[in-house]
């Protein structure tokens, strides 16, 4: 019979599958959106696991998976220098400009 307990070494396996991030397109015409993650041994399995885990209620028509280690992210500590400079470029937005009422189609 299985033996188990705090000191059982077999509890810690070395066989955990890599982690994958899952992106789902919920319907044609929309972007793929991050929905969560899962474990899989390879990309084929990751796509199928994503199908079995994340689309049981017709949530998607297309699936992307990316191994989590391949995702590179911006650093939250640099968020200020990254994103704040865009805050004062109001002239990039159409609402910055006034258009006479009589002008249509602009």
């Amino acid at each position: 019979m299985t033996n188990w307990g705090p000191n059982n070494k077999s509890i810690m396996s070395q066989s955990e599958w890599p982690l994958w991030e899952v992106f789902i397109r919920s319907k044609q015409g929309l972007d793929h959106k991050h929905v969560g993650s899962l474990h899989a041994a390879d990309a084929t399995m990751a796509v199928q696991n994503a199908r079995d885990v994340y689309t049981r209620r017709l949530e998607g028509v297309s699936i992307w998976v990316v191994e989590s280690t391949h995702i590179h992210a911006s650093n939250p500590d640099e968020a200020a220098e990254f994103f704040d400079p865009a805050a004062d470029k109001v002239y990039r937005h159409p609402t910055f400009y006034t258009v006479p009422d009589s002008i249509k189609h602009m």
Partner: peptide, 19 residues
């Protein structure tokens, strides 16, 4: 739960080895 995990270990290893 422990049993499922332990009896599943070889399956996980096989999938990794094959990959």
């Amino acid at each position: 739960r422990v049993q499922a995990h332990e009896e599943g270990a070889w399956v996980l290893e096989a999938a990794l080895a094959h990959a």
